[in-house]
Simulated assay, not measured.
Amino acid sequence: MGPLRTGLDGGEGSSQQQLADALGIHRKVMVGLLDDLEQRGLVQRRRHPADRRAHAIYLTDVARELLPRARRVADQHEDEVLAALDASERVALIAVLQRIADNTGNSPGVHPGLQSASRSATAGASAGE
């Protein structure tokens, strides 16, 4: 469950600001990102039902079709990048990156794939591995 899952497809109809907050990015960056996604036909901006000043963001059917493949590619890339690390090293990396994010004011969050690595390392350590 990466940022898109926690952002767009997990929060259909969220405002641009809500998505920026969920993804931990500046609102101006979010606007540019959404402009690009909209140009590619992957999202639609509609008036927010509760706030006329805001836009609600919705995935298009094209985006919904692409998401499973995008997740597979992202997971594959993550596995390749982290291949040299065992589960306990991945947990340590996550902890260090989280401390850096906390120190720089970025939103906390952990990719579920790395959460499972964390659980595996914790289980292995408690089993005496």
Rank of each mutant, 00 (worst) to 15 (best):
Q39N: 12
D21Y: 04
Q17Y: 07
R27G: 01
L67N: 07
H55P: 00
G24S: 03
P49Q: 08
Q44V: 06
R53V: 02
L33G: 01
S126V: 13
M1L: 07
A54E: 14
G24N: 04
E12K: 03
P68W: 04
V91I: 03
Q44T: 11
A50Y: 00
D35N: 15
P3H: 06
A127D: 12
A127I: 03
G2V: 04
R52V: 12
G113L: 10
G32W: 01
I94R: 10
L97K: 05
G105K: 11
D9K: 13
D9Y: 12
G13M: 04
V43W: 05
R69I: 09
H111T: 08
Q39A: 13
I25F: 00
P68E: 02
G128F: 09
A101Q: 07
L4F: 14
D102H: 04
E38W: 01
G11P: 04
Q39M: 07
G7S: 12
D61F: 02
G7T: 06
R5P: 00
T6S: 11
D9Q: 13
H26Y: 09
R72I: 05
A117F: 09
S107K: 15
L59C: 13
L37R: 08
H77K: 05
A83I: 05
G113H: 05
T6Y: 10
P49Y: 02
L85I: 06
S88F: 03
G105V: 12
G105E: 07
D51W: 03
A22Y: 00
Q76A: 15
Y58T: 03
G24A: 07
L114G: 02
L34H: 03
A84P: 10
L82Y: 01
S88A: 14
R64Q: 11
A56I: 01
L23F: 02
T60C: 05
A121V: 09
G41A: 08
Q44C: 03
R46P: 00
D61A: 15
G41T: 10
A127Q: 09
R46C: 07
D36A: 14
V81L: 13
R119K: 11
S88P: 00
D35K: 11
L59I: 10
R119T: 12
A95W: 02
H48W: 01
T104I: 03
L66F: 08
E78P: 00
L85E: 07
E12L: 07
A127W: 06
G2H: 13
A95N: 13
D79Y: 02
G10M: 04
E80L: 15
L66K: 12
E65W: 04
A63G: 10
S107N: 13
D36K: 15
S116L: 15
I94W: 01
A87C: 01
V73I: 14
E12Q: 14
R90T: 12
S14I: 05
H48A: 06
G24M: 05
L23G: 01
E80S: 12
T60E: 06
L23Q: 03
Q76C: 10
R71W: 10
R53M: 01
L66S: 06
S88H: 11
E129Q: 09
P49E: 06
M1P: 07
T6V: 10
G32M: 06
R52S: 14
G13P: 00
D51S: 08
H111V: 12
T122M: 01
A121Q: 08
S88R: 15
A63M: 14
H48S: 05
G10R: 05
T6Q: 13
P49R: 05
L4Y: 14
Q98M: 14
A50N: 10
D79M: 10
V62N: 09
Y58C: 03
R69G: 09
H26D: 15
